[in-house]
Each structure stands twice: as structure tokens, then as C-alpha cells.
Amino acid sequence: MRVAVIDGQGGGMGKVIIDKLRKEFHENIDLLALGTNALATAAMLKAGANDGATGENAIIYNINQVDLIIGSLSIISANSMLGELTPKMAEAISSSSTRKLLIPVFRGNMTIIGIQNEPLPHYVEALILHIKKLREEYKCAKQTHT
């Protein structure tokens, strides 16, 4: 399973996600760090991503080359991350048919009613449980097609 983690600014959230995914799944998951800037990509690579790419074109190109996209809710909002996430990136990500797992962390002027404000580690634990379930579905689907 190839998973893209998208982050910007300092890459702190992506770093936490990749670190936890790597510890949980070891080398049984292929992690692609997609940063809106080089600092974010570097932080995610240091955390254990297999590959990394930076910028608008890299994100737009790679999101349809993976099985899963992970990031904060802001990756589908134009001009989020202090303007680092361009409208073209947001459109490409939200329009992609690739499954997206979005963490409801957003520092902009958006509030999602009904979402509880949890610390990032709680969201990442829920993310890992969801990915375990998806991996089982993915394995079953692959076996059915072979």
C-alpha cells in the first residue's frame, strides 16, 4: 500500500504521522512525503518516509499515484497553511478519486461543527486504526483479483 502524507509549513504534523505509521507498520507500508515546501518534505523524510517531493506540481502529479492520501483538513482548502496550499493543489486533492483520510486540524477561519477538538496524538491513533482496517480490505480485494 502506497500512502501519501501531505503537509506544509514546518512539516510537524506530517512528521508525527509518518513517525507513527512507520513504527506501526514498519516497512510494510510505502510512505510518500508530499510537502508544500522543502522544509516540510525534509521533516517527513527524516521521520521515515520512503520518498519525498515538494511543491504544487509534485503534489498534483503524485496524488493519483497512491492508494491513500493523509493530511489535515486544510489540504482541501485553497490558500490554507498561510497560503502555501494553492487553489490548484486543493482542487487536485479534493477532486482525486484516491481515498483521503483527513485529520480535523485547521488553524484557519473554519470551524467544523460537531468535531471534537482532540490533541494530534489522539487523531493519529484513530488514523492508524482506520488504516489497519483499510489494509485488510486492500489485501482482500487484491486476493480476489488474482
Rank of each mutant, 00 (worst) to 15 (best):
I112K: 07
L34Q: 02
E84M: 13
E137I: 15
A42V: 04
L85A: 07
V124S: 04
M1D: 05
Q116S: 05
S95Y: 03
R99L: 11
L68E: 05
Q9P: 00
G52D: 05
T111C: 04
T54Q: 06
L101E: 01
L68Q: 06
K132G: 00
H145T: 03
V3M: 10
A53M: 12
G52I: 05
G52V: 07
P121S: 13
N62H: 13
E136D: 05
M81K: 07
A141M: 15
C140R: 14
D67S: 13
L127H: 04
A90F: 11
L21M: 15
L129H: 12
E84W: 07
Q9D: 03
E24P: 00
C140S: 12
G35Q: 06
L73I: 15
Q65P: 00
E118A: 10
E136Q: 11
L31E: 05
A38C: 01
K133G: 00
A58Q: 09
H26F: 15
M81W: 14
G12L: 12
P87H: 09
N79L: 15
I59W: 08
I63F: 02
L82D: 09
A126G: 09
Y123D: 04
R22D: 00
D30E: 07
I103M: 08
N50S: 14
K139Q: 14
V124D: 02
K142W: 06
E24I: 05
G12R: 11
Q65T: 06
F25W: 03
G35C: 08
H122R: 14
E27A: 05
A141T: 14
A4M: 12
G55F: 06
I75P: 03
A90Q: 12
V66C: 09
E137Y: 11
L21R: 08
E24V: 08
I63H: 04
R107K: 08
P121F: 14
S74Y: 01
L31H: 02
F25R: 12
Q143Y: 10
E27K: 09
R135I: 15
M110N: 06
N37V: 07
A42L: 09
I112G: 09
N117Q: 14
G8Q: 02
Q143M: 15
I103G: 00
A141Q: 14
L21V: 04
G114C: 09
E24H: 10
G83P: 10
A40L: 06
G108F: 13
T86C: 10
I29P: 00
M110W: 12
E84D: 04
A43S: 14
V3L: 14
G11F: 06
L101K: 07
L102P: 02
V16F: 15
G83M: 13
I103E: 01
R22L: 03
I59G: 02
E56S: 01
V16M: 11
G108L: 13
M81C: 02
D30I: 11
A40K: 01
I18T: 05
T98L: 07
I17P: 00
N64F: 04
N57V: 11
I128E: 03
I76H: 02
G83W: 14
A4W: 10
N117R: 15
A126N: 11
A38N: 03
I75L: 03
V105K: 08
A49I: 02
G83S: 10
T41Y: 05
Y138A: 05
T98W: 13
G108M: 07
S94A: 13
V66G: 05
G11T: 09
H26M: 12
A33W: 11
G71H: 10
I69R: 06
T41L: 05
H130G: 00
M110A: 10
